[in-house]
């Protein structure tokens, strides 16, 4: 994630490393606070004690305070080794997201072999026999274990009724 370059002053030498985070968090706090103002009013008979928007507002305030401290704290904390952003992240998300989207209507297991084949390919695997075995076996295994043996409720879509 690149820092918000457009917010940086002309000489960024001394810019606190977490300033961008701080601003984002403060923005989220502001948004959250606005949302709390939209809560329904409490029905008359229930009115006892703290009103429902109070607690979230307190928490938002606390986060905001922390965010301000963050801006001036200076240290970035021990971040994990930051992997560079790659296309693979987006494509993986796309694959996963599409799969979940189809799971409801078509069922989890209908497109699972396709998902199982695409995933390793996206991550660079090229041994086709291995991929084929994986894509063929895993769905069957999962189906046998979770649907047939355990009776776990899962979106079966087109396969509804199979395996009882």
């Amino acid at each position: 994630m690149t820092d918000r370059g457009e917010d940086a002053p002309a000489s960024p030498r001394r810019l606190p490393p977490d300033l961008a985070d701080s601003l984002v968090i403060l923005a989220i706090c502001a948004g959250g606070y606005l949302l709390t103002l939209e809560f329904d009013p409490v029905p008359e008979f229930m009115r006892q004690g703290l009103s429902p928007e109070r607690f979230p507002q307190i928490v938002i305030g606390v986060i905001g305070a922390f965010a301000l401290m963050l801006a001036f704290a200076g240290r970035a904390g021990q971040a994990e080794k930051r992997p560079r952003l790659r296309l693979r992240i987006a494509t993986t998300l796309l694959l996963v997201g599409t799969y979940v989207a189809t799971a409801e209507s078509l069922g989890m297991f209908t497109l699972m072999p396709l998902y199982c084949a695409l995933f390793p390919v996206l991550w660079g695997e090229r041994h086709w026999p291995l991929i084929a075995a994986y894509a063929g076996l895993l769905p069957v295994l999962l189906f046998a274990l979770f649907v047939v043996l355990l009776g776990t409720p899962l979106p079966l879509g087109l396969l509804e009724g199979l395996g009882g």
Binding site: M108, E125, F146
Partner: peptide, 18 residues
Amino acid sequence: KQFLWGTVFLLAFIGTYA
């Protein structure tokens, strides 16, 4: 990892949905 994480997601899907 190219086989592990695809599988992990499927298990996560099952666990979350159930």
